[in-house]
């Protein structure tokens, strides 16, 4: 099998690696780039723990080929915080105790960020439906939904402050 040379951007950094043709983006991120924040819960697209943004679109990286990242931008949980400033979603997860074991958290942080990138004023229902692809077995989702709503509010206030 011939390996593929992938030139891509991961969390804002130009990145290169070699991979097998059938290798998933999840495996490449974890095993080639050492970005183990993205988790594998199922490998079949059903749990959302491997969620990343590919060109800003929320995808399960276990269903994406590593080669599909060529010349595109990938954002993983490791790239959500900017410097030492946590994203409002991350801060809200901490404050709301929206994680117990935390294995679902990276996927949920990425998924919630992608929602709030589009809509900083989601209803509870919109949050629940947006996150429906991310399984969490520990929390019953209550505190996760609250955290995302809180983060949305923080982001709305931030933008209005900027405007003012």
């Amino acid at each position: 099998m011939s390996t593929i040379h992938v030139r891509t951007t991961v969390n804002g950094e130009p990145t290169e690696f070699l991979c097998e043709p059938a290798e998933t983006l999840l495996d490449a991120l974890r095993n080639r780039l050492g970005l183990t924040g993205t988790k594998e819960g199922c490998g079949t697209g059903d749990c959302g723990s491997c969620s990343v943004l590919l060109e800003g679109r929320l995808v399960p990286s276990c269903l994406v080929l590593a080669a599909e990242a060529i010349d595109r931008e990938v954002l993983t949980v490791e790239g959500v915080a900017v410097g030492d400033a946590l994203h409002p979603v991350q801060q809200a997860f901490l404050e709301q105790a929206a994680l117990q074991c935390g294995i679902c958290t990276p996927g949920l942080v990425v998924a919630a960020k992608s929602l709030l990138d589009r809509n900083t004023n989601p209803t509870e229902q919109e949050v629940r439906f947006w996150l429906a692809g991310n399984l969490c077995r520990c929390t019953g989702y209550d505190k996760i939904v609250r955290a995302v709503m809180d983060a949305a509010e923080v982001m709305r206030n931030e933008t209005s402050e900027v405007r003012a």
Binding site: T44, C47, L131, A132, G140, Y141
Partner: peptide, 16 residues
Amino acid sequence: GFLDYRMPVASDLPMI
């Protein structure tokens, strides 16, 4: 698998 072994997802539930 999680597709056919159906665990609750966020949109199935109200606040608890």
